[in-house]
Design a protein around this nucleic acid. Sequence first.
RNA 1: GGAGACGUGGCUGAGUGGUCGAAAGCGCCUCACUGCUAACGAGGUAAGCCCUAACCGGCUUCAUGGGUUCGAAUCCCAUCGUCUCCGCCA
Length: 427
Amino acid sequence: MLDIKFIRDNKDLIAAAAKKKLIKFNVEELISADDKRRLLMTSTEKRRAEQNATSDKITKAANPEERAGFITAMKIVKADLEKEETELKEVMTTWQNLMLQVPNIPDMSVPDGQTDADNKEVKVWGEKPSFAFEPKDHVEIMTKLGMVDFERGSKVHGFRGYFLTGDGVRLCFAIWNYALEFFSAKNFTPVLPPIVVRKINLFGSGYLPQGEEDLYKTQDGDYLAGTAEVPIMGFHADEVLPTAELPKRYLGFSPCYRREAGAHGKDIRGLIRVNEFYKFEQVILCEANHETTVKYHEEVNRNTEEFIESLGIPYHTVANCGGDLGLGQVKKYDIELWVPKEGKYREISSASYFHDFQCRRLNIRYKDAEGKLKYAYSLNSTAIPTPRILVSLIENFQQADGTIKLPAPLVKYFGQETIGGQSSLTK
RNA sequence: GGAGACGUGGCUGAGUGGUCGAAAGCGCCUCACUGCUAACGAGGUAAGCCCUAACCGGCUUCAUGGGUUCGAAUCCCAUCGUCUCCGCCA
């Protein structure tokens, strides 16, 4: 959600934003609805003022006759008022609907483009492994090592179902423990949030009304969030935060549920695209300042890069193009890890900032130095998702004998250097 | 699942038809006091929208939406939310 005044003053920017983001939105329609809204508001307010004034006279009337006269006069005003208020209500409904569709303005540095194919590479790190043998994909390696069971996953869950088993589970726990320690050292407060959430939280964080079909829903009308960002953003909804407490830095960990409704037939093999997974997520609320939010945005993205670098997995970072940005996002970086068998990079992380787009919807405010209430700025980034990270991790570190050599930081948490072979814990 | 209570400003909390945007307290701000700080004292302090260069002014908001009324925080209905007790269950 944006400020209507800002929209009126910058309608060209909004139109350009919609165009850049490939979002269908007609600013003029909103402006004309707003013109109507203003006109009706002014006139109903005038009538109300009259009503209030007369009401006051009724209270202070000198005698019953005078009083009765005022009441009769008011009955007439009331009829007009009711008619106008009905009209105003209709206009307001249209107006609010349009307001929810206004795209946030992408940053100047966001590249033009239609799809993720147009994203701009901004960083490349690491050396892609060259194998002296024919590398296998993660499905084959993990299945052979008893780390995953897709067949029974489909039997139990259905399409995109999987079981992690044995060392697959131990490896996840090792990553989680390492991630918790790694990101905690960067001054985040860890949070285990509820992931079954009220609808309002999805509106607040910008996943609704547009993303309905990708969300699981309960019979009570609640939703399963696709990311811990949703409950964590809801955490401070309707609050006025003490300025001294900003920035708020949270590291969420939660299961994530995504229907992948628009992705039929896409990534049907393996752990790349699944309906439920686990994710550490960085969320920051900060003061309403562009430089500040950009600083944190670079930081959270860099945190994840550092984490990946510590594991030694080759990656690149892309600046997402306009067409690949969500309604509320100002700018987004994706980090993509090298997947040897596919011979391409696959997304592992997404870092975006929103200015006050989310906090306006969620009503998260703070008092600035002048004592004025302001909407906070929000930003978030994946810290690390499992099991998707396993795809690159395992494929990059596979050995000729079918075992997996773990990167150094994970050894401590996993308890051994290699998965598979003689010493394997897998049973 | 059954029964009940409740929803008021940044917070606590009073208010059962007009004098209520709302007592009181806390918090916060300013001033005074003090060697300094604290305490005490005096004053101030809701948000959003419209109008305005600004001041002034106007409107809305007591969970939300409807209704009754000339007039609603207050009465009625619905919805949402919170809490308590009983039952069931991890």
